[in-house]
Design a protein around this nucleic acid. Structure first.
Lengths: 217, 217
DNA sequence: GTCTCTAATGGACGATCGTCCATTTAATGT
DNA sequence: ACATTAAATGGACGATCGTCCATTAGAGAC
């Protein structure tokens, strides 16, 4: 029987469960995001992060070289996780209609998994400081190329069937993303009143207007 | 001839130009907003605000009782100014069509006067810390009752002419505001690429889909 | 066991934070 | 001219900030 204090890392080498640099790195990032969601970026200090992670003060300097880099890494991690979850939730069969694929993106973005108190607080906190923090600015964009391409391709298929003008696809794509942005803000501002279903239906309704005969309930 | 260092306040009493509590109050608020736009909320300290305003450190405690209250007052001032300017720009004659009134709101919100680097940075900075700052949270709402009512009334008039279902007005109202939110984010994220005209046209297009025969170019 | 190397610790450090108040300055009343 | 009142100053204060490093602890090599 393998010793309890030994685990295997992804490469299969044995490592101590008490000494795990990568795990501690992730722990710090996690603690940073939790702290931001809990008390806000302004009050998120090195001390708060350390006491939440249970690690010593020196770890941040050791693993990230400073608080700024940790914040940047946290923003990157958050962004990566968002798009990974989005991918997971929009992985429909290849025979899915373009309308279904668009609605899958919308419903994923409005789902509990992506749109929740923690994520909205973190997201808007990062966006709020992005313009004065180069590192974070890189990961505060709404326009993820892959997601944009998914929508654009779906809208292109829909438009081709009806033969609309070329700008329609661009407008539908950035309009959909803009509406989702607005919904996140609505959620942040008043979580009590917010309704995921009604928000999704609202966007569907706008798209139904844009593509006659499509996106009907 | 009246002495140069004496001016009249709104109530007509004589006051010194060197001693003007209200003017200094406003100066502090202005300096706070400028500092936030310049270096971000995180780095906006009492010292930075004071050196920008040219006033002494004690003034913040004297006029506002502390930094938190100053930040709240700044958020309130910013919000008030936004809606005042919005009112000014949407003061069409009473014979204006509901469509024109809606488009006036959209174009005002996307105009240089309201949507500029300074205002977007401040707006998103406040929103980012709103969830951990009660005072600011009050002034970070997108759903200004008066503006909502303006849109709702206009959409109601448009819908009545065509006889649509009652939810249409609600959806058009909050959809329009959500789209505008998204446009502000687009502007903040990439000011170089952003186009006021195309953004307004995109929203018009969405509304044209929602109200057949209306909002056509 | 002993050596080596790196992960991890936790306190020292100067800088800066926000608050507060004793003092000075300017305007007004008598 | 003098007293009174309020505006404004600027430094003192303790607390906390983020960085850095001398030290300890743990794991593998031999």
């Amino acid at each position: 029987m393998e010793s309890l204090n030994r685990v295997k890392d992804p490469k299969g080498r044995k490592r101590s469960s008490k000494r795990d640099p990568e795990a501690n790195r992730q722990l710090l990032i996690k603690a940073t995001l939790d702290t931001i969601a809990d008390i806000g970026v302004t009050d998120t200090s090195v001390s708060r992060i350390c006491e939440r992670s249970g690690l010593s003060r020196g770890m941040i300097h050791l693993h990230f070289g400073g608080k700024d880099n940790l914040l940047t890494a946290a923003a990157q991690h958050f962004s990566t996780e968002y798009y990974a979850e989005m991918d997971r939730m929009t992985d429909l069969g290849s025979d899915a209609s373009p309308e279904d694929r668009v609605m899958a993106v919308i419903e994923a973005d409005l789902s509990e998994a992506l749109l929740n108190p923690r994520s909205t607080k973190i997201w808007h906190a990062f966006r709020g400081i992005a313009s004065s923090h180069r590192g974070i600015a890189r990961y505060s964009s709404t326009q993820d190329p892959k997601l944009v391409e998914t929508l654009r391709r779906a809208f292109t298929e829909i438009a081709q069937q009806n033969g609309h003008d070329p700008n329609l696809v661009n407008d539908a794509t950035s309009g959909t993303l803009a509406l989702l942005e607005g919904m996140w803000v609505n959620y942040l501002t008043d979580m009590q009143v917010f309704s995921r279903r009604r928000s999704a239906e609202l966007i569907r309704r706008f798209l139904a207007g844009l593509f006659p005969g499509k996106f009907i309930l």
